[in-house]
Design a protein around this nucleic acid. Sequence first.
DNA 1: AGCACGCCGACT
DNA 2: GTCGGCGTGCTC
Length: 802
Amino acid sequence: MIANVIVDVASQNTNRPFDYEIPEKFEGIVQPGVRVIVPFGPRKILGYVISLSETSSFSSVKKITDVLDVIPTLTEELLHLGKWLSNYTLSYYISCLQVMLPQVMKAKYRKELWKLTDEPLQSALDAVFDGRGVMDFEEFEQSGVSYHVLRKHMNEGEVDVHYEVKSRETKKLKPMVAPALSPIEMEEKLEDLSPQARKQRAIVEYFLQQPDPLEKKLLLDKLQTTSAALKPLVEQNVIKEYKQEVFRDPYGGREFKRTTPFALTEEQETAIQPILSRIENQQHDVFLLHGVTGSGKTEVYMQSIQQVLDNGEEAIMLVPEIALTPQMVERFKGRFGSKVAVLHSALSAGEKYDEWRKIQRREVQVVVGARSAIFAPFTNIGLIIIDEEHETSYKQEDRTRYHARDVAVQRAKTHNCPVVLGSATPSLETYARAVKGNYQLLTLSKRMNEAVMPEVELVDMREELHSGNRSMFSIPLKEKIEERLARKEQIVLFLNRRGYSTFVMCRDCGHVSECPHCDIALTFHKRQNRLKCHYCSHEEPMPEKCPECESKTIRYFGTGTQKVEEALQELIPEARIIRMDVDTTRKKGAHERLLTQFGEGKADILLGTQMIAKGLDFGNVTLVGVLAADAMLNLPDFRASEKTFQLLTQVSGRAGRHEKSGEVVVQTYTPEHYSIELASTYDYEQFFQEEMKLRKAFRYPPYYYLTLFTISHPNQLKAEEATRKITMFMQQKLSQQAYVLGPTPSALARINNRYRYQCMVKYKKEPEQRKFVERILHYYEDEMKQENGLQITVDFQPYQLM
DNA sequence: AGCACGCCGACT
DNA sequence: GTCGGCGTGCTC
């Protein structure tokens, strides 16, 4: 039998199966989806068996060296999905297979030098071995001994280069004990035991009471004894000791309050019926659940999942990384208990692996996770939910550039199951499809508990400035904050930091400190008093005086959360503030701890960035303030308005979710902008209409699809030239209906000393496009191999345009 | 990707 | 001659 293997070498030439003979001892074990170690040239590498065949068209095939899995790591479905993904993102098959798996399943390679003789080597190499039989190949390379010497020894058969492949995964094992004999034999043994052996007696008696295996430590604790008493029993084969894999449980030992399904409102009932019917009939369909914040989308999700579980099927629920808060996990664990696995980036590599294995071993039926959880190795999927469907984090922005929504639809089609996309502010793409009838639109227009959407007040910061208020807090916001403080209610202040980083500028000559390798201003980090670049690793001390004009008036500008916190504290000294940003939440568990503190009322004001916009649900929050609503509006991104509308709506949704009604203050320099105005009246429909007009006029999605080429090279002319060639080629090949724009310097024109140019394609239908792109990539293959050569990335349906 | 092989110039 | 550097082509 022959195994067709995709090897762990990401390159154009190896992007196809290689054939290997299956040794007799592995017959029946080697099957599609299994990971194997195979000889590849002089080395040994990891590979994935994708299929089996009787014969090979190759004259000589090597044998599989080793098999790593008993259960296939990838199901047949995932193997196919990987192939599809590779086609759809134009990336290597092997990269697609790897993107579906936890990081630890990637192979670790080691290259060693083995000494095969006991005699000393007649060269300097002997000293490098220093009496050892094995050493790291790197040691040899650093020793300065020449390759010719090595070659000579290898020809003499005295040393050999040894390649090793290791799996990174580590399984945690715990010692277990269980009876090794039948109860009757145990009874007999009990009589044989000497009367002095009281503890041994106790152990045997224990297992006569209950013969189930249990953790060794637990048994010894229970019977108040030590291994000393167990040992003779093990030696006499009465008790057996063995190790069992334990799963690291990131939520281990925590009690989750059981929750039971709520009675659905009429609206929820209407929305859930079509979903349930598709689940029942095993029918594929895509639903858009458009529900205002606080309308109870989660309850609809959970009851749909319950239906799936009752049918003996499995469910995947995606949530944006940032919304994967403890509150969210709690709700799911509370409802579905141990049936849930959680996958997100805050877990350690080992924890992620264990959660993944729980899925693989069918120990759970529900997965709640961020983007990559869409690849959960379930075999019987009955429902896929994508919450906050408009979130850009569902798009992977590097290497295998996929959108989880597309993968979800792909998987749902193979499993004949529905997909539910949920959002209060759907992406234009999705809503347009719902309007067209491609997706089924389900609407929840009312909040639960009869709560109303909070009143939004727009404050024109230009007027504030004119009336002499130069601080970042408007008079109305300050007054409302004080009001809440007096009433012992809580406040959430949201700072949209994007485009507002703290940069350093000289007040005399206007000099701005920039990164020497990237075309971007350096960011000031107060704690270390240093300037850092956010795109490369460059950093430097904060200058004492301006490097240009030597003036001492060099200062930092912009509005970081830290600075806002200081200003706020100065303005309202009695306020207790919790600041949440990347700095204060870096440590593990910090995020959760800060939220818990806020929830317990240990602070009055929660001040933070994007990360507080989602999923927070605190009853005592009655005021939400947005400090700079238009911060994002001027970014070079055709989705800027959409993102602003979404963000304002999400943030407003944090207020007045329970009995107490809420209020929102939005500070802006452009209150007349439609995205801000319409967000203040919660008018999604109107916003959609306005935005669609612009998208149509400027030929952007959802009217057109986009393809973005980003080409970079240390030499600016080379980058531009290559981009020009690519642009012309695409212009030539694509139809008249496509628009090919370029070469354009990227909004980030230089990163890490590489100049970046772009070519953008806007098109409606170009079935052959991928073929042309492949040709381009093939054409530049050699130039892309070099370390300082050309770099070309292609993104179909890009979200990040910079 | 990472390795061997082979060609070429520099140096004992 | 011998050594090391780098371009080329292959891996079942």
